[in-house]
C-alpha cells in the first residue's frame, strides 16, 4: 500500500500525492525515512529537504519550519510561511 503525502504551506498545497513509495523528512532528531507501515509519529522539522519517491519520479522540496504528522499511512506536513 503506497503512502499518501500532503504538503501545504500558508499559501497553497505544495504536494498532494497518493502514490508515494518512500519519503525522507528532515525531522528534529535527524533525517527520517518513511516507508508504508511506519509507526505513527509527530515531529517538528529542521531546515532541509523533503524527498519523496513515486513509481516513476523523485522530487525534493525545501523546508524551513513546520511539523509533520504521520498516521494511517498518511503523511501530513504543515510548513510555516
Amino acid at each position: 500500500m503506497p503512502l499518501k503525502l500532503k504538503v501545504v504551506n500558508m499559501k497553497k498545497i505544495l504536494v498532494e500525492n497518493n502514490e508515494v513509495e518512500y519519503c525522507e523528512i528532515p525531522a528534529k532528531c535527524g533525517i527520517e525515512g518513511i516507508l508504508p507501515g511506519h509507526i505513527n509519529f509527530i515531529s517538528f522539522l529542521n531546515e532541509g529537504k523533503i524527498k519523496y519517491k513515486t513509481k516513476d519520479e523523485q522530487n525534493e522540496i525545501d523546508v524551513k519550519e513546520g511539523f509533520v504528522e504521520f498516521s494511517d499511512n498518511t503523511i501530513s506536513i504543515l510548513l510555516k510561511g
Binding site: 528534529k28 532528531c29 505513527n40 509519529f41 509527530i42 517538528f44 498516521s71
Partner: peptide, 21 residues
C-alpha cells in the same frame, strides 16, 4: 479504531511539542 499511539519527537519534551501544535 486505531489505538496505536504516536511517537513524539523530540521525545524529551513531548508535552511542549503538543502544546505548541
Amino acid at each position: 479504531v486505531n489505538v496505536e499511539d504516536y511517537v513524539i519527537e523530540p521525545d524529551s519534551n513531548d508535552e511542549e511539542v503538543l502544546s505548541k501544535i
